[in-house]
């Protein structure tokens, strides 16, 4: 699909907005619908879109495979790290109230990092699965 100019132009216009929307969903999830899971999937979908239009090799250059694999584990580590931080600050595991002198701010902080962890792992896993599936096919490889 690399040669189709309409698809390429539309993709170039849409992908930045998709990524921006993902960030909005991620960080505005406290106030509106959304959160880490939805944001992670939207980020993965934007990169998948890029790979479908510009080829798997181009997507692998933009978002390298080692980065994706690290994200798979990093998100869970961030999430569990918030729990450990609660323990170290004298609370229970995943206790957000102790993360800040103001309990409500502590809740905000905890939810922010927990959602970030979810988003990182979800987008990493989705992208990794896509890379592996697409790497086994032929039409994506032809572009490389």
């Amino acid at each position: 699909m690399k040669s189709d100019i309409i698809l390429r132009v539309v993709a170039k216009i849409l992908i930045p907005f998709a990524l921006m929307f993902a960030l909005y969903v991620q960080f505005h999830g406290d106030y509106g619908p959304g959160g880490g899971f939805q944001a992670g999937v939207v980020i993965a979908a934007a990169v998948v879109f890029y790979a479908v239009i510009f080829g798997l090799a181009a997507a692998r250059r933009a978002v390298p495979e080692p980065v994706v694999e690290s994200m798979v584990a990093l998100g869970v580590l961030v999430y569990a790290g918030v729990g450990i931080a609660g323990l170290l600050l004298g609370g229970n595991f995943l206790d957000y109230f102790v993360l800040d002198p103001d309990p409500v701010h502590g809740q905000h902080r905890g939810i922010f990092w927990v959602e970030a962890g979810v988003g990182i792992t979800v987008s990493g896993v989705m992208l990794k699965i896509f890379y592996i599936f697409a790497g086994r096919g032929r039409d994506f490889e032809e572009d490389s």
Binding site: P33, G35, V72, G110, I111, V118, T121
Partner: peptide
């Protein structure tokens, strides 16, 4: 302090469950 109750339940009240879910995805 989070207006979206879904987020409050998911990330705070049910934080253990969501940690489990993230681990399942992992």
């Amino acid at each position: 302090g989070v207006p979206n109750v879904v987020t409050a339940v998911l990330a705070s009240y049910r934080g253990y469950d969501t940690l489990g879910e993230t681990t399942v995805v992992f």
